[in-house]
Design a protein around this nucleic acid. Structure first.
Lengths: 202, 202
DNA sequence: CAGCAGTGAGAACGATCGTTCTCCTGGCCG
DNA sequence: CGGCCAGGAGAACGATCGTTCTCACTGCTG
């Protein structure tokens, strides 16, 4: 606003990172550390080190730790939504799309850095002190509910099936995180199959 | 050990609390504060204030914050197990006992201080840094799995039903916590009813 | 009655951490 | 070529917090 008319992008500095690149590296570092170790067990200094930026740059792009957590959750939400939609789109039919949810979860659970749902973890850690974070988490969960409801509708099943299938997915996530195994995905898938079959033949 | 032969209980001091009473008050305060606000958002000083004991006494009874968290979780585990067993025992038959799980959850969700499963919350907050806490959480969840498995066996249903019903209970807890409503209990109950019916008529 | 053991109240300590500030270096524009 | 602005590295600051220590007191024991 107050700049001169020639507000060129400083961008292409040789040794330095472009703003976009710095943003991405910071978010990636925040995701790995916050998710892997917990938000409160990770200092901003560690994020800086892992991202390879200066503290100044870090605070220039994200005004506070809370804002960084929020942005990393939003990015995770984007990736989750995209992953779910791709998985559903690859299924042969509407019922297959619903079951694909649990196959997607199974693949996630098998990743060695899997530590449960980042949203649930952050909610437990900051939900009571940060309304912004709590809102992002609620939004994520309600978006997932809507996603499942859409697939249920496509399959021609009654709407009451959707929250039931969502509960199975939620339970599978926390169970896999705590037990440290991926079997809950298959169990949820089997239960979902039964519920879908009954709902469709009613 | 090194005390004199007359190791009497100092117990009945007029103004002071007995060791047992202090323990209970501390655990109660820890439960309320740790659960309501998160472990890391609660200082030992606040626990002391809420329990009405001195810091010295507090550290004498619980050698560290981690130990206090562990003991409060163990107490919660006891209360949860007892509540579940009472709820199941009050049901007319084995299927009713399984469904009573979700009624018990519904009652819990409606409590105004409900903030999700304390074990999941603590796991997210300390699971990666405290093996002791992680172990208590895993034990709690596996005990619940066994409890459900026993009821499923009593009902004459195949063992594969048990983890499915447990997933519904887990999902209902996190969903209720984040959404702030109790409807997930009813949804889980309905889904459970369907799964049980199918499992028994197979 | 003298002494001691345990206690309450709270100060003190050491560490951590979120955030800001200082200093310095190196391109870019005029 | 000289001033200027952006950025990097890291020190510094202020607050919080887990844990321990000090000190005065009280009720019991011998």
């Amino acid at each position: 606003m107050t700049g001169t008319a020639t507000s060129r992008t400083p961008a292409a500095r040789p040794g330095a990172l472009t703003e976009e690149a710095a943003r991405e590296r910071i978010i990636a570092a925040a995701d790995e550390l916050f998710y892997g170790r917990g938000v409160q067990n990770t200092g901003m200094d560690e994020i800086r080190g892992a991202a390879g930026v200066s503290l100044k740059r870090l605070y220039q792009l994200f005004p506070s730790k809370e804002a960084l957590v929020e942005q990393m959750l939003l990015e995770r939400h984007r990736a989750w939504t995209e992953g779910m939609e791709v998985a559903a789109a690859g299924a042969p039919d509407a019922v297959g799309a619903l079951l694909a949810i649990y196959d997607y979860l199974a693949g996630w659970f098998r990743q060695e850095n899997f530590r449960g749902c980042a949203f649930i973890n952050c909610f437990g850690e900051m939900g009571s002190t940060s309304p912004r974070i709590a809102a992002v988490v609620r939004r994520h969960k309600s978006d997932f509910q809507e996603f499942v409801a859409r697939l249920v509708s496509d399959a021609g099943a009654p709407p009451s099936l959707a929250p039931q299938l969502a509960l199975l997915a939620e339970g599978a996530q926390t169970t896999a995180a705590i037990a440290g195994t991926d079997e809950s995905a298959g169990q949820a898938r089997n239960a979902a199959q039964t519920l879908i079959r009954v709902a469709l033949t009613a």
